[in-house]
């Protein structure tokens, strides 16, 4: 088990290195000069440009730049950003907190909405409720978040005025982006919960539990729910990893000051250190969450052996 974790963490390092390397190469071959975006539209003194290029090491060969980057990354330093000359760590830190807040809220909506809807649908199979759940969740999965976000904005902000249009970081302004993120996910959670529960309901061991004369509620909580919830947890863990990596579209629609929005802004201004920083972080978080899901999976299902 300990060895398994160590090996998985080793894999994490390799994947993060690979991801940054690919990204580095991509940004390197991109047309345009990153220095051109520094300091606005004014024509610049060639001497200044030269100095800036030297400062950021942009004249070094790709390999040298990459090695320098990795050296810093090893110390947890994501480098220095182009536009403000500030440390990327410092810039991203509050945005990470914002994204994490949004992710946690969204995942809570997810669990409550998705699980209850899915479980009820499975228990009332073929009822009107079940059929409408199947219909609505399929619809929700198919609609892109940009559409959901804008519909919510139109209705709850413009028509009803319940929530602010531009987010100010308050809880009230977080509700709509969190719901937007949660709707698609909760629909998937509901579908997974429904189908696994239907499968478990038919399982032989549930019949055994009935034949043992256990009370209905015991059968439901101990024998049905526990087995049904395992695939849901797997999905939620991976989904949470994705959410923590920043929601580009939703954060942009609601102007939520998280790393998704930061990434979009950085791409528009060719602020390469931010781009690499955000992606490196997202990749690492995603892999870490996957590891946690695997460990949780083994804890919940004794048949899974980690090796």
């Amino acid at each position: 088990m300990g060895r398994y974790v160590v090996r998985r963490l080793g894999q994490l390092v390799v994947v993060v290195l690979g991801a940054t390397m690919i990204l580095f190469a991509c940004l390197f071959v991109l047309p345009g000069d990153p220095v051109g975006s520094i300091g606005g539209d004014k024509a610049r003194d060639p001497a200044v440009v030269k100095e800036l290029r030297a400062h950021y090491g942009l004249d070094d060969p790709l390999v040298v730049q990459y090695v320098h980057y990795v050296e810093k990354l090893g110390k947890g330093d994501l480098g220095e950003d182009y536009t403000q000359g500030r440390s990327v760590n410092e810039i991203l830190q509050p945005k990470l907190v914002n994204t994490a807040k949004l992710a946690v809220t969204a995942i809570i909506f997810d669990v409550i909405l998705g699980l209850s809807v899915g479980v009820l649908a499975a228990m009332r199979r073929y009822s009107v409720w079940d059929v409408s759940v199947t219909f609505l969740t399929t619809l929700a999965v198919g609609v892109p978040s940009i559409v959901i976000g804008m519909i919510l904005q139109r209705f709850f902000v413009v028509e009803l005025g319940w929530f602010p249009l531009i987010s100010d970081g308050s809880f009230n302004s977080m509700v709509l982006p969190a719901v937007t993120l949660a709707i698609i996910d909760a629909a998937l959670v509901a579908q997974i919960a429904r189908s696994t529960m239907l499968e478990v309901l038919r399982a032989d061991y549930v019949k055994t539990a009935v034949a043992k004369g256990l009370p209905r509620r015991t059968i439901l909580t101990r024998h049905i729910m526990r087995n049904s919830v395992i695939p849901v947890i797997t999905y939620l863990g991976i989904s949470f990893g994705g959410l923590l990596g920043g929601a580009l579209i939703t954060e942009t629609i609601f102007n939520w000051d998280g790393i998704g929005l930061a990434l979009i802004t950085a791409i528009q201004s060719q602020n390469n250190p931010i781009i690499v920083g955000v992606v490196t972080y997202s990749v690492a978080v995603f892999i870490l969450l996957n590891l946690i899901v695997d460990l949780l999976y083994a804890a919940l299902d004794p048949r899974i052996r980690l090796s």
């Binding site: 399982a203 032989d204 061991y205 019949k207 055994t208 539990a209 009935v210 034949a211 043992k212 004369g213 256990l214 101990r222 024998h223 526990r226 087995n227 395992i230 919940l300 299902d301 004794p302 048949r303």
Partner: peptide, 20 residues
């Protein structure tokens, strides 16, 4: 059930709950 009359099923592996 279980108390006065009990049942033994064919496939013990699938008839026992895998996570308990």
């Amino acid at each position: 059930r279980g108390n006065k009359m009990a049942m033994i099923f064919q496939d013990a592996l699938s008839s026992l709950n895998p996570v308990l």
